[in-house]
């Protein structure tokens, strides 16, 4: 257990020591989105009966939770692999389950910190309602964990930074952007609505938004089930790779 706590603590310290880049910068990015899209569209658009700027906030928060959870585990692993400092965690007797848990939890913490930062900053621009805070928390934690685990897979798989960037740009970005961060899928043509239902990130954001407004495109229980199923699947895959020492132990 001490091995796990130490690794978790090290992973927290790693991003906290550069919090300006890892926490403050993504909060600023989200605020820019909010200012630009929020102000341009606020007067013209209402979604689920709420003002667009209010509708946008949870989407942006969740987007940053997801992207930062992914960034945390993936960049930590790729950096350690490229610099060789990965040996420090490969030599000790840390069970692979503890290894997994430490990286994923640290990713969740970073995701939540950025998400909370965005939420607090947006209080100046839009009033905040939270119809069901427990749903908000559940979706934030579980979705962060899914992306943290995906980040581990990406970090293990990549051998160079550009491979990781490709993973991020061609998989993670499209999945989050096309998931309903900026719109309700009901405003899409029927075909794209159907396609959106195959995107797990759609359920993360839709369920998260339910926690704020009490309304959503899909029933929150369904979304939660999908997110839990994703977490189980991605975790099992990651654990399997770690157990084999895939791309870690030659």
């Amino acid at each position: 257990m001490i091995g796990f706590w130490t690794l978790f603590y090290k992973e927290l310290l790693r991003f906290w020591k550069v919090a300006f880049q890892t926490v403050a910068a993504p909060v600023l990015t989200a605020l820019l989105y909010l200012l630009i899209f929020g102000h341009v569209l606020d007067e013209h658009v209402q979604v689920h009966g709420v003002r667009y700027i209010s509708f946008l906030v949870p989407g942006l928060v969740m987007m940053q939770v997801l992207q930062n959870a992914f960034a945390n585990s993936s960049s930590s692993l790729i950096q350690a692999k490229i610099t060789g400092s990965i040996v420090f965690v490969l030599l000790p007797p840390i069970p692979y389950g503890a290894f997994f848990a430490a990286y994923v939890l640290a990713s969740v913490v970073r995701g939540l910190m950025v998400g909370l930062g965005v939420l607090i900053a947006t209080l100046w621009f839009a009033e905040l309602r939270m119809a069901a805070p427990l749903w908000v928390l559940a979706f934030a934690v579980l979705s962060g964990a899914v992306l943290g685990a995906l980040g581990m897979i990406a970090g293990l798989w990549s051998e160079k930074f550009d491979q990781l960037a490709a993973f991020q740009n061609f998989l993670i970005m499209p999945l989050t952007m096309l998931s309903g961060v900026f719109y309700s899928i009901h405003s899409l043509p029927a075909v794209w609505q159907t396609v959106s239902h195959y995107n797990p990130v759609f359920y993360m954001i839709d369920g998260f938004r339910y926690g704020f407004f009490g309304v959503s495109d899909v029933a929150p229980e369904v979304s939660l089930t999908v997110v839990i199923a994703c977490f189980v699947a991605v975790s099992l895959l990651t654990l399997g790779l770690l157990k084999r020492g895939w791309k870690l132990r030659a």
Binding site: G3, L7, P92
Partner: peptide, 30 residues
């Protein structure tokens, strides 16, 4: 692994930490 201590041939280090932090963290891993 718990019974083995190994000094790798290549110089590697974690740039985020001081010497003492590095050694405390390594102790924790064990």
């Amino acid at each position: 692994r718990g019974l083995l201590g190994m000094v790798p041939q290549e110089i590697v280090f974690d740039p985020f930490f001081s010497v003492r932090e590095t050694l405390r963290i390594q102790s924790g891993y064990f």
